[in-house]
Each structure stands twice: as C-alpha cells, then as structure tokens.
Design a binder for these strands. Structure first.
Lengths: 213, 213
DNA sequence: TGAATTTTGTACCGAAGTGTATGAAATTAC
DNA sequence: GTAATTTCATACACTTCGGTACAAAATTCA
C-alpha cells in the first residue's frame, strides 16, 4: 500500500492529491495495525481494534488496505521485508561468524522485547503460525519467509567455511537450520514469558555449538 | 474434567449417576475439541464450532467444561501431559542418544503430520503461542511445558555424558536447548507447509550436530 | 466562484459470537 | 409408580463482528 510517487512537480511529501486529504499516514497506520495484530493475533483482532489503533474509521481502512485479511497480509509481508534487511545488516561478512550470528540474535531480542510494552516475540511466529493451518496464503508467506532466513544463514556459514573460519567438513545446511531453529525457539520463548537474559544466554550457547571447531 | 471414580459398587465403566445419562464421553469430547482448536486456533474457534465437533450443545459444554477458555486450558494441559509421556518413552535410557532423539522427532512428526487430514504442527506452539501474549494463564502453561521438555532433553543428555557417549566437556544445557529448538522449528515448519521428508532430514542433521564427537 | 474529486464520519445491516433461562427427557432411588 | 436428580434441547437476550451506504467535508482544478 505504498502510494506511488508518480511524475509529480513536487518531489517533497505526498504529491497533491485531488480530493479531501487523508487524516492518516499509510505507513504509520500499517505500523499501528501491525502492533495490534502482534499483541492479539489475527483472529483476536477486530476491525474496531484496528480502527482504534490507527485512528482511522472502518470505511477508510477498507478503502486504503482492503479487508482485515489483506491488511494482515500486508503487515506480514512488510515484517518479512524488514527482517531481511536486518538479517543482511547483521550478517555482514566483515566480522567473525560468531559475532554475526550474535548480532542477529541481539537484534531479534530487541524486537521481541520492546523497550516499552510487554514482550511479544516474533510477529510472524507469534501470529502467522496459528493462521497458517487454514489460510494457504498466510501459510505460503510464512514458509517463504522462514526459508529466506534459512538461506541467509546458510550463505553466511558457507562464506565462513570459505574463509577457513568453519571447517568445510561440517554441513552448512545443517548449521543453518540450527541457526534458524535458535531464532525460532527464542521467538517462542519470548512470547511465552521467558526472561530476556535467559534467551541471551541461550543464544550464546547455540552460537558456541554452531561455531565450534 | 476427569470425573472422580468415587466409592462405587461398580468398578466397571462409569458408576451409575443419578439423572439422565450423558450423551457424550468427556474424554472423547475433549479430544474432539482439541482437534478443533488445533486447526483453527483459540480465537478462531467458536463455541458453536466446539458444539459441532463434540456433538454437545452449548449448555452441556458449559456444564461439563466451563467456558471456552477453560475448555482450551484443559485441552492444553492434557496435550502437555501426553507429550511428557511420549518424551519419557522415546528418551528411554537403553538406547544410544542419537536414537533416542530421533525417536522423539519421529514421534513428533507423526503427530504433526497426522495420517488423515492436513499437517497442523504442534498444538501448543500452533495455538498457545499466539494467545500467550494476552493471557497469563496460557502463557505460564506454555512456558512450563516448554521447560519440562528442556529438562527431559537435558537429563537424557547428561546420562549420555555419564555413559561416555557424549563428551563431558560439552554443555549439556546448551545441547538440550538445541534439541528443543529443533523440535520447535519442526513444529513451526510443519504448520507452515514444509514437507515431512524435509523435516525428517532436518532432524537427522540436528541429531548429528548434537551427538557429534 | 463553482464543479469535480476524494476522504471522512455516522449510521445501518445481517451474521455470528457468548452466555443463560426454561421446560422436556431419561435415568436412579424409594 | 412416584419423586428426585441430572442432562438435553430449544430458544432467547445481548454483544460484537465484518462490511457497506450515504451524505457531509475538504481539497484541487478550471
């Protein structure tokens, strides 16, 4: 739902649209809706909840984002996109693998335990997994995201093997799965009420095993 | 909701109750309700859904199990109990650790991919994780279950260290977390639409890393 | 200034949700 | 056979849900 810039004389802000101006910012509304889905889940969130959270009224939500399901799918895909960016940054190739992995987990933890508000874990794992059983589009979006993270990890581990940091005898795909599994278990436990410090320790232990000689 | 046997003259079947007999079997109804929650999630399941699944009508559900939330908590706790039993059996100490772990994952996979019907993953991870954010009782029940499985794994790994099967230099708690993480990622991926064969392979790879010399 | 356009805000609709009241039905106890 | 007890089954009350119709408001364009 990002409005296209169009060939506008005004590169600044939103090109003047013709009718009554919007009372909301689409990007901000998407964030607020995401936060609500994150807390309450997809089925546990009503359109009124979304209207309250975004400050929009229901007809505006329909006009801007379509129905509740489309709004959620939009939120889920945006979440994955942000996740890919964070992964790329954290897994940069100019530092040791162990550091790169820990940066992934540190970043994840700071998302799963927000500075204000209760810990909610991972948006995808905390909300999409439940819906995946009955909604094939949510299911495929979820699986695609999970596999993308697997691939990020695997590529980074292969690079560490090339540079001699990790033995080439080890199974890169297997280690990547373990790196993903560590992220998944942290996501689940954060939402289940585990302490952040415990999960930090868990991450360190997992990295130690994955990067072991 | 297991009715107590009471001091009855008839040890067989249900001791004759006084009024009109029940048209349902509580244990079977709980199973059927669990199956419905499993597919649709807690918020996605209505009392009418539960009534349809169990063949009970709504007043009977309230009389027997309380409201929807109590019914769900009952289902969740029963699921964990069954899980503990399965873990104890699979992790028996008379076989190599690698075999014991694989038996855990094989058992899990046969639950996550039922012989008939679509794969739904783990009941707790697939339904309780979402609700955990806003329901403290579901949250603590979930965390307790997760930690119990951690403990099963850790005790089994320590035994393998005592018997010399696994080096004592390795961190048993860390390996237990990886074993749990493997279970969690399998649970998530199963519901996300991954192929069973792929998850079987993932399990083998994880066991290889965990049990590596 | 006035027409065209787009969004807002209220109100409404039918369906589905949770929970309960009440009387009929089926069984045991006397 | 009759009373006591327990469950069943229908129906009801009230709320919430997703979705939409429609008129007022706010802006641009000519």
């Amino acid at each position: 739902m990002v409005q296209k810039a169009e060939k506008s004389a005004r590169p600044d802000a939103a090109a003047k649209r013709r009718g009554r101006p919007r009372a909301y910012k689409p990007g901000r509304a998407l964030q607020q809706a995401t936060a609500t889905f994150w807390k309450q889940g997809y089925s546990g969130t009503s359109l009124d909840d979304l209207a309250d959270a975004t400050g929009m009224n229901r007809p505006s939500i329909y006009a801007a984002f379509g129905n509740k399901r489309a709004f959620y799918l939009n939120a889920l895909m945006s979440y994955w996109e942000a996740g890919y960016t964070a992964m790329r940054e954290a897994l940069a190739y100019d530092k040791p693998l162990s550091e790169a992995l820990m940066q992934v987990y540190e970043r994840a933890l700071s998302i799963y335990f927000p500075t204000r508000g209760q810990p909610l874990g991972c948006f995808a794992i905390g909300t999409a997994v439940t819906e995946a059983a009955e909604d094939s589009e949510i299911r495929s979006t979820l699986l695609t995201g999970l596999r993308a993270l697997d691939d990020f990890f695997e590529a980074r581990i292969r690079a560490a093997q090339k540079s001699g940091e990790v033995s080439k005898k080890r199974d890169a795909a297997a280690l990547a799965y373990l790196a993903s599994a560590t992220l998944h278990t942290i996501a689940i436990r954060a939402r289940a009420g585990a302490e952040r410090a415990d999960l930090e320790k868990l991450a360190h232990q997992a990295v130690a095993v994955i990067c072991a000689a």
